[in-house]
């Protein structure tokens, strides 16, 4: 009997014949992304009567290190939709380039846009051509893409929110994650936001009917409040953030918002960790 440790637990040669070592792969199995590396935290969004408000902070973390502090995680698409990315930042950049190519292809389909005459400049953003990919179409596309990648065992490590209008020009908000799971709701949040921000947003928009009563200002206020709560409670967050409002007039995106009126008084009362002596 072979008592060397290498033979432990193996079928005995004298019983089963010599083991075919060609089955042993020296290279190991093919591996793809198994964990995100540089990450963005929560993305939150809420519908209101004319559109959707979305926000995400400008931080990309490397583990617990706040590595990049000016990362724009809300990406407009065709100036009619907004896509918010949580999770791996390099996968977000890959998707951003991919969506840029998709937008170029989509423009080919509606080629021959006329240069707007200068006199139109004063008015609001020009209407997109009819039949352009809307947020619902875009979300469908992204969900197919994400599901395909997870089925290839090479997922894009992101949680994504897509906001804009659907084919009936009604506000649209939906999510898709690295598993290709899709979800739609009057308010949505990814990551920590799903625990901390979602309950707050639901107080204002529990149902589609509630959301349809919210004004733009109310929706923006709710989102700003949520961003503040997230900054208080989420250690991987930042007080600089991006805020997007998407309506039928297009996307308004501000990428250098600052949390206002913070109050850290509550921190005094937190007990149970740190250097407290009492």
């Amino acid at each position: 009997m072979d008592h060397r440790p290498q033979a432990w637990g193996r079928p005995r040669d004298d019983v089963y014949g010599a083991y075919d070592a060609s089955y042993l792969q020296t290279t190991g199995p093919k591996t793809a992304t198994q964990a995100p590396v540089v990450t963005g935290t929560s993305v939150i969004a809420i519908k209101f009567k004319d559109g959707v408000v979305m926000a995400a902070d400008n931080l990309a973390s490397y583990g617990s290190l706040a590595r990049f502090t000016d990362v724009k995680r809300l990406r407009p698409f065709l100036s009619t939709s907004i896509v918010g990315f949580g999770g791996d930042v390099s996968d977000m950049q890959f998707l951003d380039r991919h969506l840029n190519e998709l937008a170029i292809d989509e423009a080919y389909e509606h080629d021959h846009a006329e240069t707007p005459s200068p006199s139109d400049d004063s008015t609001t953003t020009t209407q997109p051509p009819r039949g352009q990919l809307n947020a619902a179409n875009l979300h469908k596309y992204l969900s197919k893409l994400m599901y395909r990648r997870r089925s290839d065992f090479d997922p894009l490590w992101n949680q994504i929110l897509v906001a804009g209008l659907d084919s009936a020009s009604k506000p649209f908000l939906a999510s898709v994650d690295l598993r290709g799971t899709t979800f739609s709701s009057p308010s949505l949040a990814t990551g920590f936001g799903a625990m901390l921000a979602q309950p707050i947003m639901r107080r204002f928009a529990a149902t589609e009917e509630d959301a349809a009563k919210l004004t733009r200002e109310q929706a923006v206020d709710v989102v700003k409040e949520c961003m503040k709560v997230l900054f208080y409670r989420d250690a991987r967050s930042l007080d600089r953030y991006s805020l997007a409002v998407v309506t039928k007039d297009g996307v308004e995106l501000r990428e250098d918002e600052q949390l206002e009126k913070q109050s850290w008084a509550f921190a005094e009362r937190i007990r149970g960790y740190g250097t407290q002596t009492v």
């Binding site: 990309a60 990049f68 000016d70 990362v71 724009k72 995680r73 990406r75 930042v89 977000m92 950049q93 890959f94 951003d96 380039r97 840029n100």
Partner: peptide
């Protein structure tokens, strides 16, 4: 018309 200005690299999300 090739841009005369410095263009962001595709997929650039920070400065």
């Amino acid at each position: 018309f090739d841009s005369t200005a410095e263009l962001p690299v595709d997929g650039e999300v920070g400065s």
